[in-house]
Simulated assay, not measured.
Amino acid sequence: MELETCRHEIDRLDQELTKLLEARMKIVAQVAAYKKEHHLEIYDPRRERAVLDKIAGLAADKELAPYLQTIYRCIMDESKNYERKRME
């Protein structure tokens, strides 16, 4: 595959990922509202571990699992930051 073809495909996937991540963050806002109302902590280590384990299990290419987990750690960190902002 040519470099420009690869870049075009990455751009297309980035558009899809952006839509999905935006939808995910909208749900995070709902989670923040729930946690605020019920006086719950933002960080739930058991939930994060479960998500990371789930991601590793979902990876069709197990060699990519650690990289996907790293990406999800970043997603969860930003989700927590957004929750904090929403709970102010």
Rank of each mutant, 00 (worst) to 15 (best):
R86N: 00
R86P: 00
D61H: 09
E4A: 06
L21I: 07
L64P: 03
K35V: 03
T18G: 10
K80W: 01
D14E: 08
M1F: 10
H38S: 10
R49E: 11
R84G: 00
A23N: 14
I27K: 11
R46V: 08
P66L: 13
Y43A: 07
K62I: 04
R47V: 06
I71R: 08
A32M: 08
L64M: 10
T70E: 12
Y72A: 08
L64Q: 11
D77E: 05
E9S: 15
D77L: 04
Y67L: 10
L68Q: 10
D77H: 04
L64R: 11
P66S: 13
E41P: 05
A50H: 13
I27A: 09
Q30D: 15
L13E: 12
R84P: 00
A56P: 01
Q30R: 15
I75C: 02
Y67A: 13
R86G: 00
A65Q: 03
I10R: 13
L21P: 02
L17W: 13
Y72R: 04
K54F: 09
H39D: 10
E4P: 01
L68H: 06
D44T: 06
E63C: 07
E37M: 14
A50D: 10
D77K: 06
Y82K: 00
L17I: 12
S79L: 01
R49D: 07
E48W: 05
A29P: 06
E78F: 03
D53Y: 02
V31P: 05
I27F: 09
K80S: 02
L68A: 07
R73T: 02
A60V: 05
K19M: 09
R84L: 00
I10Y: 12
L58W: 13
K19D: 13
A60C: 04
R46S: 07
E83F: 01
P66R: 14
D53S: 06
A50L: 10
L52S: 01
I71Y: 11
P45D: 06
G57E: 06
D77I: 01
D53W: 04
M25D: 11
M1H: 08
E83P: 00
L3A: 11
K62Q: 12
K85P: 00
Q30K: 15
E4W: 05
A33S: 15
V28M: 13
D14Y: 08
L68E: 04
V28C: 09
K62M: 03
K80N: 01
C74A: 04
Y67H: 15
E4S: 05
L20K: 15
I55K: 10
I10S: 11
L40F: 05
E41I: 05
V28R: 14
Y72T: 02
I75N: 02
V31R: 15
L68M: 09
C74K: 02
E2S: 11
T5H: 10
R46Y: 09
H38Y: 14
R47T: 07
C74D: 04
T5M: 08
